[in-house]
Nucleic acid binder design. Structure first.
Length: 441
RNA sequence: GGAGAGGUGCCAGAGCGGCCGAAUGGGACGCCCUGCUAAGGCGUUGACUGCGCAAGCGGUCCGUGGGUUCAAAUCCCACCCUCUCCGCCA
């Protein structure tokens, strides 16, 4: 959620920042928000005025009734009648207040985050600049050997490590199932990511189902309800990423400045209805309704956030590199930036078999957008450590440390040998129960 | 799922419908005392929000949401959560 006070004090700044996203609907929403905010303050002050009078009268009534003389009691009854007359006005104003407040919140929840000034301009994903790489073999995307040009769905089925047909039978289309060494490698990838990040990140095993409030804090609700699986009977939702529970761990709390940055990582299953992508990437492991992912996340002060963002990008990139995958880092341009994102980088891996760049990680800085929705604050301190007055919203950052399916797919293609076997990257071998090459028994 | 108890500030814990944003104790912070520490003394110590340059003034918050009342931490209703016991269970 953007800061309504910023909209109040610097409407043009907010307007021009959001205009960079190229979404004209936002401008209307800003107008609505401005109008509702002004109206809300008008009503609030009228309502508070009445309340103030009622409070004063009540206090007086109390004093009069305690003294107990007949004259005082009579006066008290007079005052009570006066106060009662305020009641109808207050009810009306309070009802209107709640209505306008709810309307304002609804609008604010739909307004996307302000892009960072350094986020590159652009209309869509075709304009995302490559900021690092691409790291490809000599000859670029044509530099791969012939035996690497086999899509992972062929290789994996041949090796018996992927069984999409049975996954579809027992669940539905767009669910996958790994078997044998494939299942082991999926788990190894998670283990590898967790162990690699354990130097700085506390491991969490969060719930995979969360409340509506939790899913709203990170920005999935209310706008993207169709993308999530809902368990209506219990008012719960399946998490689309561990970002959701991790971000809300400290919802409604005030974190000590000394705790920041607070870094967490979690393995979790991720559930996505892929409502907008039905029928796309139906083969193999490129897109599915359920997959495994290790997420890293930080709560930080605004000062700490920019450096943390780059550290997290570096961290993810080096893990991908260590797997021997060809990759590049792109920055997300304003037109392609997600609703909650302030600044974002994607790590993409080149998969020679299906001949495409696969997004395997997205590392993002949300400024205080999520923190405002989730009410996650900290107590700021001066340089010498003395606490400042009040509290401030934290900044949140997160990224996929490792999303299993696409990395798994890229490994099956990149590390495919001429005989159809797949060599397991060195860094995964400690977790592979002695399997160095998949397909060799 | 059933029965009972309970949710109050940083923590513990009191609170008759009005004098309660809330006693008391602890903690933290500041000052005094002191060679240093401890003990002791004095004092400070919530969040959100509106108006205002500010001083300040107003509103809200005692698990959440409703209700009764001139007035609710206090009474009523619903829900959520925690604890104990029973049942069920990986």
């Amino acid at each position: 959620m953007i800061d309504v006070r910023l909209l109040r004090t610097d409407p043009d700044g907010v307007r021009s920042a959001l205009a960079r996203r190229g979404d004209t609907a936002v401008l209307t929403q800003l107008d609505d928000a401005t109008r509702l905010d002004a109206r809300l303050r008008e009503i609030t002050s009228a309502r508070d005025d009445i309340r103030s009078q009622v409070n004063a009268i009540s206090k007086q009534v109390g004093q009069l009734r305690r003294s107990g003389s007949d004259a005082d009691i009579a006066e008290a009854e007079q005052l009570q009648a006066t106060s009662r007359a305020f009641g109808a006005d207050e009810d009306r104003l309070a009802a209107e207040h709640d209505e306008v407040e709810a309307a304002l919140r609804e609008v604010l929840l739909a307004i996307p985050n302000l892009p960072h000034p350094d986020a590159p301009d652009g209309v869509d994903d075709s304009e995302n600049p490559v900021v690092r790489g691409p790291y490809l073999p000599d000859g670029g995307t044509d530099g791969f050997a012939g035996h690497q040009h086999v899509p992972h769905w062929d290789t994996a089925v041949e090796l018996g490590i992927l069984d999409a047909e049975r996954a579809t039978k027992i669940a539905a289309s767009m669910f996958t199932m790994q078997r044998g060494a494939g299942a082991t490698m999926a788990r190894a990838l998670c283990q590898y990511a967790l162990d690699t990040c354990a130097d700085e990140f506390e491991e969490i095993r969060p719930p995979s189902l969360v409340s509506t409030a939790t899913l709203t804090a990170t920005g999935q609700l209310p706008k993207f309800a169709d993308d999530s699986y809902a368990i209506e009977r219990d008012g719960l939702w399946c998490i689309p990423t561990a970002e959701v529970p991790l971000t809300s761990m400290y919802a409604g709390e005030v974190v000590a400045a000394a705790e920041l940055p607070a870094r967490f990582m979690a393995y979790s299953p991720c559930f996505r209805r892929e409502a907008g992508a039905a029928g796309r990437d139906t083969r193999g492991m490129l897109r599915s309704h359920e997959f495994d992912k290790v997420e890293i996340l930080a709560l930080a002060t605004p000062d700490q956030a920019p450096e943390l963002l780059m550290q997290m990008v570096d961290r993810v990139e080096s893990m991908i590199a260590a797997l021997g995958l060809h990759h590049r880092v792109i920055e997300i341009c304003t037109g392609d930036l997600g609703q909650s994102h302030h600044r974002s980088f994607d790590i993409e891996v080149y998969a020679p078999g299906c001949a495409q760049w696969l997004e395997v990680s997205s590392v993002s800085w949300f400024s205080d957008y999520q923190a405002r929705r989730g009410d996650i604050r900290y107590k700021p301190v001066d340089a010498d450590g003395t606490p400042q007055k009040g509290t401030a919203l934290v900044h949140t950052l997160n990224g996929s440390a490792l999303a299993v399916p696409r990395v798994w797919a890229a490994i099956c293609e990149t590390h495919r040998n001429a005989d159809g076997t797949v060599t397991v990257p060195d860094v995964l071998r400690p977790y592979m129960r002695g399997i160095d090459v998949i397909g060799v028994s």
